[in-house]
């Protein structure tokens, strides 16, 4: 049995496998298929200060080797999470991380502060990269200045591990990563979805209610992997890699590209037990290749 333990800031992960926000609900939805405690951690649905209805249906379109979504951060707000969801998750022996989103730096900071009060939530992932909401979301994440503004506000309000999720819809993701590192982020996760669209040629309209959506699935993996390699060269904080991971081989590619941990997203829809299969697959690969500690392969491809 190889050592799969990694750290992200003060966060201690028994293995590098986590789940991507918005693809794993509150974890509970997958408890019939896997033991949630077998994961390094899981990241729950994007949470905002106030409840959000999200965008109208249709919110999803299948694409070759992937899907587009424009859910638009539907959630019942941070207080609902604290009162109704947290009690169900707090005794799990794994890391539960809350993905936090907002429309203004103050919103982000207030939402983060309320989650800071939850003892068993050891980290937040700051979403400055959602392509599906009009105000904020990705708007902050597309410039180094905007990203820095939000991270600065949240850093003052939040004391535990702060992971910042980056958008790939930018000219230089490395510059954004450097800007959030400078403001005290403990880690960056990348990539969020790539903005795209699909057209219904019979009805002559887009297949998504707001016209565009975020592309995810194995079709985005090469882009995500390239961005992880770029960011790994640009910053010193640990990277959480995600984007189209479907199996252990994909996960190991991200680790070799410089990610200390990984998130599995869209693959949860295809196989609800995929996360644990990836943990086992990484372990098996390490055993077969005489790799005793996962740090031997993290960032080994320059």
């Amino acid at each position: 049995m190889a050592n799969l333990h990694v750290n992200i800031g003060n966060l201690s992960l028994k293995n590098p496998v986590m789940t991507a926000s918005g693809t794993f609900g509150y974890g509970i939805e997958f408890a019939d298929f896997i033991n949630l405690e077998d994961l390094g951690g899981f990241i729950v649905k994007g949470t905002t200060l106030n409840p959000r209805e999200g965008n109208d249906y249709p919110r999803m379109a299948e694409t070759p080797a992937g899907m587009l979504n424009c859910v638009g951060l539907q959630n019942k707000g941070v207080d609902y999470f604290c009162e109704n969801i947290y009690p169900e998750l707090k005794d799990l022996d794994t890391n539960v991380i809350v993905n936090v989103s907002g429309s203004t730096p103050e919103d982000y900071a207030e939402c983060a502060a309320r989650i800071d009060a939850l003892e068993r939530i050891s980290a937040i992932e700051l979403n400055i990269s959602c392509p599906n909401v009009k105000n904020g979301g990705m708007a902050f994440g597309v410039t180094p200045e905007g990203a820095a503004t939000v991270v600065k506000a949240v850093r003052q309000a939040y004391n535990k591990t702060l992971i910042v999720k980056l958008s790939p819809n930018v000219t230089s993701i490395a510059d954004i990563a450097k800007a959030v590192e400078a403001e005290g982020a403990d880690s960056v996760s990348l990539i969020n979805t790539l903005m795209g669209t699909a057209i219904d040629i019979e009805r002559r309209c887009t297949k998504l209610s707001i016209g565009t959506g975020g592309l995810s699935g194995p079709c985005v993996k090469p882009v995500a992997l390239r961005m992880v390699m770029q960011v790994a060269k640009a910053v010193n904080i640990p990277i959480v890699g995600l984007g189209g991971i479907m199996n252990a081989t994909d996960a190991i590619e991200f680790l070799m590209a410089g990610a200390t941990a990984i998130e599995i997203g869209t693959a949860n829809f295809i196989d609800p037990a995929i996360t644990v299969k990836v943990v086992n697959g990484i372990n098996e690969w390490m055993d077969n290749h005489g790799v005793k500690d996962i740090h031997e392969i993290i960032g080994c491809v320059k």
Binding site: T23, F24, G25, E29, F30, K45, G54, Y57, M60, N69
Partner: peptide
């Protein structure tokens, strides 16, 4: 029978008002 992805209430794609 709205279009859906996950089938378990995680992705929030298949919503109805």
């Amino acid at each position: 029978e709205n279009m859906m992805a996950c089938g378990v209430g995680a992705c929030l794609c298949c919503v109805e008002k």
